[in-house]
Amino acid sequence: MKINIKRFSKDKVYEDKVYQYDTNEDNLLKALYDIKINIDSTLTFRCGCKSGVCGSCALKVNGVEKLACKTRIKDSDLIEPMSNSNIIKDLIVDVSHETFLIKKTNSFIEENIEIELSQKDIKIIDLQSNCILCNSCFSSCPVYDVNKDFLGPFALTRALRYINDKKNASRANIVSSIQSNGIWDCTLCSACTLVCPQGIDPKADIMQLQNISIQNGYNNPNMQTFDFGTNFNDDFGGFNPNGF
């Protein structure tokens, strides 16, 4: 079986070029190891747990974000590094923005409330807690592709996790931090949801954050650019800020 790998290096003759390799492995991570050990020792990729838990082996297969350790490959598949991040070498990208975005959204417990949590409370934050920071959602996001200040799906999912955490006394700070270049900039395209290996739905999380923001007195700034027409109030009976 032949697979195509898009390689990149500032120090080698292959800069952003596709190379074809033969392998007998159908698991992508095993195939990468096979190529590195037996064919080309210069091939560079990242992995950790090899069981789909750490997220470090994320890359793109035929343009779609995948975990190498969980992906079965076919003949002539194209393997590429993740998008929206600086490429360090071959399939390894710089993920240092993770720490920056988490700090920017205040998505952690600054001040702890001593409170007993029920199983219901734990269940509310359980799914978002499963994020492995693989950056698949970040790579697939069309908004970040044009706006490098956008907080991105995983940062906003993490924000929701800590807003819903009853132990967190600083939830208002998180809500405030996600208003600019955050929840209102998302196009709700679902690209992030489709590629999440943990089954998290960042689109739904962002919609929930929008509702929470409105309940806390924030408004969608994009609404100011909408032109409802001069007869909007007459045609639709006026606007009720408290709902229909």
Rank of each mutant, 00 (worst) to 15 (best):
S213M: 14
F45D: 03
L59T: 01
S85Y: 08
C186G: 14
G48L: 01
L117E: 13
I214R: 08
P221S: 12
N164T: 02
K66L: 03
I35H: 07
P197S: 10
L101P: 03
K6R: 13
S190D: 10
T44A: 15
L194K: 05
N4G: 05
N216S: 09
Q210P: 05
N130S: 13
Y218S: 11
N168P: 07
K2L: 00
K123D: 10
I115W: 01
N219E: 11
K12R: 07
I73H: 00
S83Q: 08
T99H: 06
I214D: 01
E114G: 10
N62S: 02
R158S: 07
E25L: 01
R171Y: 06
R171A: 10
V93G: 02
N181Q: 12
C131G: 01
S180N: 08
N242G: 05
C69K: 01
N231E: 07
E80F: 02
Q215I: 04
K50E: 03
N84D: 05
L78V: 11
L91E: 02
N24K: 13
S136E: 00
R46S: 15
G152H: 14
I183D: 00
T157K: 02
L160Y: 09
A155E: 10
L151K: 06
D126L: 12
N164G: 04
D121Q: 11
Y21G: 01
L67R: 14
C141Q: 10
D126E: 12
S213N: 13
L78Y: 09
T157C: 02
A58D: 05
S180V: 06
Y21E: 02
T44D: 04
Q215K: 07
G238P: 05
F150K: 00
K166T: 08
S56K: 15
F228K: 11
N168W: 04
K70C: 08
E114T: 11
K12I: 05
K203R: 10
N62Q: 05
V195Y: 09
T42G: 15
I109F: 07
R7P: 09
N173P: 09
K104A: 00
N4C: 01
D165S: 14
P221H: 06
Q224P: 03
T42F: 14
P142C: 06
I102N: 15
Q128Y: 06
P241D: 12
P221N: 01
C186H: 15
S129W: 11
L156E: 04
I3S: 13
M1R: 02
K30D: 10
N130D: 11
C49E: 03
F45L: 04
G238Q: 11
D94F: 06
T187Y: 04
K10L: 13
D234Q: 13
Q198M: 00
S41G: 07
L127E: 03
N233W: 14
T71A: 00
N27V: 01
C137G: 09
T71L: 01
K66I: 02
K89G: 09
K167N: 14
Y162I: 13
K17Q: 03
V175E: 08
G52R: 04
R46C: 05
